[in-house]
Design a protein around this nucleic acid. Structure first.
Length: 818
DNA sequence: GGCTCCCGGGG
DNA sequence: GTGTACGGGAGCC
């Protein structure tokens, strides 16, 4: 009997069944039951655009080719009226039997000289399906058909008809967060092939669990003991099986937890067959590793945070601890991870705190997922791809996916991705970016910041900037020319016909404005906030996309015109602010930093209002914030400051730090600590002298060898075998030494070293921490190459030179270093 | 000054 | 899976 069911698709994939590509849509019904819907009525195709008046259909239909004992053939062709780069074309839609035949056939015909071009041959079949069927994941779809028997963990329905029903979205997907802890002896690299997983935690709705394979006495109710790692892995599978999550989430799980589990499972010949079709967890190593499960959404919340939220963060590091602090105002539990393996081996009775730690990481991951899910879901709805895809896409891919979807609706054929030579050529092209009014390094107070809201999107929209509207014949000599500085760059844009890109971006901006209106009128709504934020994110990515070498809709001329108009508008604000008696401190692309210079905040507001009256179209200058104090720092010692390097103090007493390289792990702890402290003392306490004294104390401490050895250890990880290194850096020199002593070192091994006094090269002075005594480290090196560089520029703006840090210490011989 | 190497996240 | 996707800084040469 035919069924009619409404469901929310979560994942889409396809499988070849009886020589046919069958789409599998996995999702949840309105009755909250898992379901798999099959659609075998969608055929792979691509476009061919013939040269004027060329008849190629017949020739195309005859294509048949043998490859790896299988035949790839064109099944049919049809003429389709489409638009391509602003022109009407009679394209040929070429169908093939299987998705994989598409690239094979394209390869054969790509050089036919009767063809203008071959297009849309590299669009994933599953994505093509969603676009063409107008199906949006996570929103309600109606399907008719019959249940069939097929190897599957969820009921399978073969569709006779399937259509988007409404834009109602799945409300509460079932989320399960997990995290593993692995055995990792102190100082050793993470080595999945060597070291076992010792515990796994899960956290979900009314569900918390920690499995581990060492027994000890505990009151923790969520702790469950298993016999060994093998059983631990079985529990991992079982838990997922029983909990039946829609979303399985982890922190960096794409590249750590999942691959680790997979590697360990292979040892025991355990299949991680958690796919809803009984398929195995798939780990694909590439530029970045991805881990996927059929029918089940694996969400690496870390990846989403880095890729799409990164820009708006105050922190520049994305450790779980940092992101949890930033987004949840919570921290990881403080345990000594280095000691975990020792306790595991010697005193299991003390494992309790590690179980708590393990669970807490899952809790934080779960909360991050919950918190960001609205943002992810909104992007899914706007772009029309499953969570899994959205999770792993960067800005340009988000834009491109959106454009591909819209291109279908507007009957536009998408331009092709560039190939090697094209990419190389594009990479060599440069263009002028935003205008930077370089700050005079210094310490300032009462700073007001204004910025253009979505500067580039509003410019692209109001100036109709796009690949098909540029330098049109119909508006030659009539349309305004973009204010580029280079006389050879003359770009104007059609004033008669709206282009595809500006049309798309205008729609996004207007949708966002409507939502902002609703938000203003209503109570706070995380969902609307997320929608608004997603629309902004997408719109803001268009400009970068136009200039991105890998883009289909690439146009460096459009990117140039956009920044040219941007410089024009920001110059306008700067000039008028100065005219109105404000002091302009700094400006970068779309923002201006003014000091009140005795004026009131209200006067500044009035000024911005006046600017706004004169702005065209959707453009708007907005108020960004007020800061009681701020420091602007120079990148190179010199009169002018570097862009994007400053620290501000908000009225609430929080530091907003931009552009100070967060000292990374191959820096000593002391360098990092000093930089943090100095900024704090200067901005929060407003006591530069005190900061200077502090650094002097540290320098003195280094000289007198009072700074503990741990704080001067530098960590660097080996990337390859020692013999494969062409250049011998300090960490390689140490690695070679270790090897001579019979210590196993290889890729991933963490080298710790201390720079001691000695010959010129750092590598000759690098020693292992354990062979160095407290007084052996090279104080001058740490002062010169670690501590001073981390704060030098900060002090430079206050009028202090490096020498000032050493004054009254009788260190005349240091003069030679300056 | 160019080339080579490492960083990220995870334990 | 209708595949192949960083960007910036330090130290060596």
């Amino acid at each position: 009997m035919a069924e009619k069911i409404r469901f929310f698709p979560l994942e889409v994939t396809y499988k070849i069944i009886d020589g046919k590509a069958v789409i599998h849509l996995y999702g949840k019904t309105i009755k909250n039951e898992q379901l798999c819907v099959l659609d075998e009525n969608f055929e792979p195709y691509f476009y061919v655009i013939p040269k004027m008046g060329k008849e190629v259909q017949e020739k195309l239909e005859k294509i048949k080719v043998e490859k790896e004992n299988e035949e790839a053939a064109v099944t049919k062709t049809e003429i389709a009226k489409r638009k391509y780069l602003g022109k009407e074309v009679d394209a040929v839609k070429v169908y093939t039997k299987l998705p994989k035949d598409v690239p094979i056939i394209r390869e054969i015909i790509k050089d036919w000289n009767v063809l203008e071009s071959v297009n849309e041959y590299d669009i994933q079949f599953r994505r093509r399906y969603l676009i063409d069927k107008g199906i949006t994941p996570l929103t309600l779809v109606e399907v008719e058909g019959d249940f069939v028997t097929q190897k599957s963990k969820v009921p399978v329905l073969k569709a006779t008809s399937i259509k988007q029903y409404s834009d109602d979205a799945l409300e509460n997907p079932r989320i399960l967060a997990f995290d593993i802890e692995t055995y990792s002896p102190l100082g050793k690299a993470i080595a999945p092939e060597k070291n076992p997983i010792i515990m796994i935690s899960f956290y979900g709705e009314k569900f918390e669990k920690v499995f581990l394979w060492k027994k000890f006495k505990t009151d923790l109710k969520y702790v469950e003991f298993v016999d060994g790692e093998e059983e631990l892995i079985e529990k991992f599978k079982e838990t997922i099986e029983h909990y039946r999550p829609d979303i399985l989430t982890g922190y960096f799980s794409d590249e750590f937890d999942m691959p680790y589990i997979k590697t360990r499972a292979e040892r025991y010949k355990i299949k991680i067959d958690i796919g809803l079709d009984h398929s195995e967890l798939k780990v694909k190593h590439g530029r970045t590793t991805v881990s996927s499960i059929r029918g089940l959404t694996h969400l690496d919340i870390f990846k989403f945070i880095v890729k799409t939220m990164g820009g708006s963060f105050d922190t520049e590091a994305y450790s779980l601890n940092n992101t949890a602090k930033e987004l949840l105002n919570e921290k990881k539990l403080d345990v000594d991870l280095d000691g975990m393996s020792v306790i595991w081996d010697k005193t299991p009775a003390q494992l309790g705190e590690f179980c708590e730690y393990n669970l807490h990481d899952s809790v934080l991951t779960y909360k991050l997922c919950k918190k960001l899910l609205p943002n992810i879901m909104e992007l899914v709805k706007i772009i029309g791809l499953p969570i899994y895809d959205i999770n792993r896409m960067g800005f340009s891919q988000l834009v491109e996916s959106y454009l591909l979807k819209q291109a279908y609706n507007f009957k536009e054929i998408a331009p092709n991705k560039p190939h090697h030579d094209e990419i190389r050529q594009r990479r060599m092209q440069t263009y002028k970016g935003g205008f930077v009014y370089e700050p005079k390094p210094g310490l300032y107070s009462d700073i007001v910041v204004f910025d253009y809201r979505s500067l580039y999107p509003t410019i692209i929209s109001s100036h109709n900037i796009g690949p098909e509207t540029i330098n049109c014949d119909c508006c030659r000599e009539k349309a305004k020319v973009a204010p580029t500085e280079n006389k050879k760059e003359i770009y104007w844009f059609c004033t008669k016909k709206k282009g595809f890109i500006p049309l798309m971006i205008e729609d996004l901006i207007k949708r966002r404005m409507r939502i902002k209106e609703i938000i203003k009128e209503r109570k706070p709504s995380p969902l609307l906030d997320a929608r608004e934020h997603s629309l902004k994110l997408l719109a803001n990515s268009f400009y970068g996309y136009l200039g991105f070498f890998g883009a289909r809709w690439y146009s460096i001329e459009c990117a140039r015109a956009t920044t040219a108009w941007g410089r024009f508008y920001i110059h306008n604000v700067i000039n008028k602010a100065e005219g109105a008696g404000f002091k302009v401190l700094y400006s970068d692309t779309d923002s201006v930093f003014l000091t009140l210079d005795g004026k009131t905040k209200e006067a500044a507001d009035k000024f911005a209002e006046k600017i706004n009256l004169e702005l065209p179209g959707l453009m708007e200058l907005g108020y960004e914030g007020f800061y009681t104090r701020g420091i602007f720092v120079s990148a190179k010692a010199g009169e002018f400051g570097a862009k994007k390097k400053y620290a501000l103090l908000t009225e609430e007493g929080a530091l907003k730090i931009r552009g100070f390289e967060t000292v990374r792990r191959n820096w000593s702890f002391i360098a990092k600590e000093v930089q943090e402290q100095v900024l704090n003392i200067i901005l929060k306490e407003n006591k530069p002298e005190k900061a200077l004294d502090y650094v002097k104390q540290i320098v003195k401490g280094l000289k007198n060898k009072k700074i503990p050895l741990e704080k001067v250890i530098i960590h660097t990880q080996l990337q390859k075998e020692t013999q494969d290194y062409a250049a011998i850096g300090p960490h390689v020199a140490i690695a070679k030494k270790l090897k001579e002593r019979g210590i196993e070192v290889g890729p991933g091994f963490m080298i710790k070293y201390v720079v001691t006094k000695g010959e010129k090269k750092i590598r000759d002075k690098a020693k292992l921490p354990e062979e160095v005594k407290q007084e052996d480290y090279d104080a001058d090196y740490y002062i010169e190459n670690q501590v001073i560089p981390s704060v030098e520029k900060i002090f430079a703006v206050l009028g202090y030179k490096k020498e000032d840090i050493f004054e009254k210490q009788g260190q005349k011989q240091l003069g030679k270093f300056f």
